[in-house]
Design a protein around this nucleic acid. Structure first.
Lengths: 143, 143
DNA sequence: TATTGTTATACTCTATAACTATA
DNA sequence: TATAGTTATAGAGTATAACAATA
């Protein structure tokens, strides 16, 4: 039975999902961030200053939602709101020095996590190919 | 450089996490359930009727939270509250016939998802071993 | 007319704390 | 005293809809 072979592995994959979520929430909490706020800040870290509209599109979330996330990030000192230089409707959101520092720390922890998970894996290439296979299947299914 | 090898795979693993979350939210929504409510119902499907206290422990969530989730599931016809036969403080939560039907459907979809993800994977055993490795690393890191 | 971001409102999930009814 | 579940309260994240300012 194929099912007997595959279902336990799906269980493990879902367990990995749960643990990664828990780990992310925990680690980000120590940095003073929630997962949605960290996602927004991470976007700024990669793309540079963005309008709230651009952030809403990137996070696939409503503009109203971005207002709330940015409010929180401004309050806690991770980002600033500045007027857009040419479009007076728009607001540019930028990382503060503190925000940029924390993003650097996130990047370091990201590398550490990759090392932890894969560093001593004996079948890394086969695992990586399998993961790519899974990703493509999911992308196709959700397209 | 080991980092160059591992980071993109972590990217893919996280992409899989995001897509699985999206897929779960979407599929459960079609069944009339949110992820937390489905988790609670799934527990009842596996364990049979449980007290709210037992559900709170199983979901690692406060008793107050269970009250809210059960309220929603009662309103939408998935579960019932009944007095505990021997402990008059406690409430037994059970799946309705409709709730049980939906759990059967969830189980079918679970098998389908396992088939979709792994059914035609050429390196399934190596992938499964790699996933187990990742799971153990995460469990150890979070213990 | 269309777009940007806001206010207004509401829902879900989460938490703590105080309380009632029972054990 | 301890436990089960509730009410009271609060906060984060999400959504839609109406609106003001600007393009």
């Amino acid at each position: 039975m194929v099912k007997r072979l595959h279902e336990p592995v799906l269980d493990q994959l879902l367990a990995v999902v749960l643990l990664l979520n828990a780990d992310a929430t925990e680690s980000l909490g120590r940095l003073g961030l929630s997962v949605p706020r960290a996602t927004l800040a991470w976007q700024l870290h990669h793309e540079g200053p963005l309008t709230q509209r651009a952030l809403a599109d990137a996070l696939r979330v409503t503009p109203r939602n971005v207002t709330g996330l940015v409010d929180g990030l401004v309050e806690t000192g991770f980002v600033t709101r500045e007027p857009h230089p040419t479009d007076r409707r728009a607001t540019l959101v930028s990382l503060t020095a503190h925000g940029a520092d924390v993003m650097e720390e996130m990047a370091r922890q990201y590398v550490e996590l990759a090392e932890l998970l894969f560093g001593d894996m004996t079948e890394f290439p086969a695992f990586a190919r399998g993961l790519e296979h899974v990703l493509h299947k999911l992308q196709a299914a959700l397209a």
